[in-house]
Amino acid sequence: MSKTILKLDNVHSYYGRIHALKGISIEVNEGEIVTLIGANGAGKSTTLRTISGLIHPRQGSVTFEGQDISHTEPHLIVQRGLGHVPEGRGIFPKLTVRENLELGAFNLNDKAEMEHRIEQAFSLFPRLKERVTQKGGTLSGGEQQMLATARGMMLKPRVLMLDEPSMGLAPVLVELIFDIIKTMNEQGTTILLVEQNALMALSIAHRGYVLQTGQVVISDTAENLKKNETVQHAYLGVE
């Protein structure tokens, strides 16, 4: 049993008066790929936002590498090595592809290392290399998604949270993204993955949680989830 790197304990989060997370408890172990699945509005993105400090839980705790980060500011959480590629990509529209990538490793001051990581990003996504001086906002939706993922990898985080990384990508590119996520994981990055494409997500994940209206309703290994009837019915499109 490897050790827990990220843990949510009975987390309640709100948007104003809207009670979005109603006591979520999740554990992610070092080296795992864990996926969150659930219908629209179930609270998947809110869970990630609560972990990365964009919103703070009103109750419960978020622990990263043994330290409580429930009320830590997002930039400090990132600096500890917990990355978050947000839903909707969050590309800076008026910055170039290169500038966007450099921001991914904002706190890295080693120039050679920065170049090295950018080269790595380009070798994974040659399309981005062709567009290096283009403004982020002028990229196609799929290209922006690649840029967002590449930018998330620039940080070389210990845990990377990805919110719907396959959104808007053509099928070949979906495969590519999932391959990349898998490779990253094999090289040591722990992954917390939110996906609409539950089948794909479960095929690379070790474990998964099913969320429904702000609560965890099922938690199991990916293998078992794929076989679970409720899951098949609701999220895998099996009749």
């Binding site: 990365s52 400090g53 990132v78 600096q79 978050h84 947000p86 800076f92 910055l95 706190n107």
Partner: peptide, 17 residues
């Protein structure tokens, strides 16, 4: 670059550290 990032999207900028 950080100033421009914050101007364009404050919450994503914070996710960049």
């Amino acid at each position: 670059r950080a100033i421009r990032a914050v101007a364009q999207d404050r919450s994503t900028a914070s996710l960049m550290g």
